Every structure is written in structure tokens, then in C-alpha cells.
Amino acid sequence: MERTFVMIKPDGVQRNLIGKIISRFEDKGYRIVAMKLMQVTRDLAERHYEEHRGKPFFESLIDYITSGPVVVMVLEGKDVVAGVRKMNGATNPAEAAPGTIRGDYALDIGRNVIHGADSVESAQREISIYFKEEELLNYEKVTEKWIYEYE
């Protein structure tokens, strides 16, 4: 099982989409191993978006992500990084397929509702920014035998 980092961005929180988005991940069968509602500080935002430092949109990105509460979570499951990225849809909502989170809920690339780590390495880095190791739970769900075929 791998883990990924997901953030419901300020526009998703303000638009009351938290429950709808979390339900999609739960319905898929992913396990939530950590979650919290929080206000992202400038320091956290700069660490999260470090790879965009120096780009023309960096300051507006930092201003946006710190503008209101977000929900951060760690999901666990088989190939969860790729699965969540597919469920989120294309970064630009105009290119996101119907049925994806961005395809269903977002219209503007600057307000695209959700973030998901783009690789296992990014997921590990992002998880460590927002969560302490002791905040990550290890547990089994009784439904997993109906979700995964174990050999």
C-alpha cells in the first residue's frame, strides 16, 4: 500500500465541497490515515510550493492557498497516488473530464478545488510538511477484503 497527500483548497472549503470530495475517496476504497482542517501559514505554503519559487504565479499561489482554511489528508491504498490524480482530473478544469473532481466542481485553473501529490516522492515530502509521524494512523478496515484481492 502506498500513501498520498491531498488538500482540499480554500475554494473547495468555502464552497462546502469537503464532504462530497471525501466521500468520493471513501467510495473508491481509499483509507484515510490522517486528516485535519487548518489554516496554511505562509511558511508552510512556501515549503509546499518550493518548486514554483521564482515563477510569475508564485506570490498569487501563496496568497490564495493562505487565504482561507484547507483540509489536508493522507490517503492510503493500492496505487493511490495515480488513482487520486485521475480522480482529481486535469489541473486545468477546462481540460478535466466530467466525473473527475475538477471536471465536476471547478471552472478556473486558479480555483481548481483540490491538490494531490504527483508522485510517491512528492507525497512523502508533502505529508512530512503537514503531519507529524505520530499523526499517521495504521489500521485495517473490515471492508478491505471486499476491495482488494490478496494472494
Rank of each mutant, 00 (worst) to 15 (best):
A96L: 07
A106E: 10
I21H: 13
S67H: 10
K141S: 07
A94Q: 09
R47A: 12
G29Q: 03
D108R: 12
E59L: 03
V13G: 01
A94P: 04
E134Q: 11
M87V: 00
V72I: 15
Y30S: 02
L17D: 07
V113D: 05
A117Q: 14
Q14L: 14
S67K: 08
P93V: 00
E50W: 12
I21R: 13
L61A: 09
L107I: 13
K86P: 09
A90T: 11
H52K: 13
Y64I: 03
F131C: 04
S119L: 11
R42H: 06
I32W: 04
M35K: 08
A123D: 02
R42L: 04
N92Q: 05
T143G: 02
K20T: 15
V71L: 14
K20L: 15
T143N: 05
F57P: 14
P69R: 10
L17I: 08
G68V: 08
I22Q: 05
A117T: 14
V70F: 04
A45N: 09
E135D: 10
D63L: 02
N16H: 13
E134F: 01
R85M: 12
H115Q: 15
V142W: 01
A82M: 10
V74A: 07
G68N: 11
L17W: 01
V80D: 03
V120R: 15
A90H: 12
L44N: 08
A45L: 02
T100N: 00
G103L: 06
V13D: 10
M73E: 01
V80L: 10
K28V: 08
S60W: 12
V142I: 13
P93M: 05
N88S: 04
R42V: 12
H115D: 12
P69F: 10
I21E: 12
A106M: 12
K78A: 11
